[in-house]
């Protein structure tokens, strides 16, 4: 199912954090949300999940406005991997993954066969079966990130919306996570991921949605959008291609204030 953003404008207090964003995201592809700090990437993700109020415009999922959907239906279609790995209670990893099945279960039903199968599959995909019975507070950062991803995958959403899933992971685990996101898209489902590292975006993203100060700068295939000149305008620092990696270089003529 398609996910389209139509003229989306979002205010936080009196500040316009998103200003008339329009884009048609396609399933089966990884779409990276890029832009400097404060560009509105997380707000866009949260508006797509109907977690924050929209001033005007709308987000359509398979033709339905996401804010009009029943919360449980929306939860079955859109999986959210937030930036903060908040875990208030120290529960076993498997119990945490189980939470991802909530949108599919009636309020008082236990886990049925479908639920169990989805949980096992999600844990196998994320390589978390080994520590399924360990308590989440005792896991390493990389292990915990995989368990949290398994939680989202267990819900079998059509779209996976991840907010900086690579933060606090070491390079090996970053590549591992990118590979898993790519695999999810390869199954024909949609992935939207907020990234900070442009090299990661260049490596994984099929499409890139570039934001600056709440406005859409460019949206399209990654190779077209990730142009050093355009990135320099948006980020306020220069970029050089070294192999397939985009390396930031110091700003020329002191024009770097936009990067704050």
């Amino acid at each position: 199912m398609g996910l389209s953003i139509e003229g989306l404008t979002v205010w936080l207090g009196k500040r316009t954090v998103l200003d008339g964003i329009t884009a048609e995201l396609r399933p089966g592809r990884v779409t990276a949300l890029l832009g400097p700090n404060g560009a509105g990437k997380s707000s866009l993700l949260r508006a797509m999940l109907a977690l924050i109020a929209v001033e005007s415009g709308r987000v359509l999922l398979d033709g339905c406005d996401v804010t009009a959907l029943d919360p449980r239906t929306r939860a079955r279609w859109l999986g959210y991997l937030p930036q903060s790995a908040e875990l208030a209670w120290n529960i076993p990893a498997r119990s945490l993954v189980e939470l991802g099945r909530a949108p599919h279960r009636s309020p008082f039903a236990g886990l049925d066969e479908t639920d169990r199968a989805a949980i096992e599959r999600a844990m196998a995909l994320t390589d978390t079966v080994r520590f399924a019975d360990r308590l989440t507070h005792e896991l390493s950062g990389g292990e915990r990130a995989r368990v949290l991803l398994a939680r989202v995958l267990a819900g079998e959403p059509d779209w996976l919306l991840a907010d900086e899933p690579l933060a606090s992971l070491d390079p090996a685990h970053q590549l591992d996570m990118l590979g898993r996101l790519h695999g999810f898209a390869a199954e024909g489902r949609g992935v939207v991921v907020v990234l900070h590292d442009l090299s990661h975006a260049a490596r994984i993203a099929d499409d890139v949605l570039l934001l600056s100060e709440g406005r859409l700068v460019a949206f399209g295939p990654a190779a077209d959008v990730l142009e050093p000149e355009r990135l320099e305008q948006v980020y306020g620092v220069g970029f050089e291609r070294v192999g397939d990696v985009l390396v930031p270089t110091p700003p020329r003529n002191g024009e770097g204030d936009r990067a704050r």
Binding site: R46, L51, P71, Y80, P82, S84, E86, L96, L99, A102
Partner: peptide
């Protein structure tokens, strides 16, 4: 149970 993931995540789960 869902709230142990944080308020926003719980809302995203219905």
């Amino acid at each position: 149970d869902l709230l142990s993931l944080g308020e926003e995540t719980a809302r995203s789960l219905g």
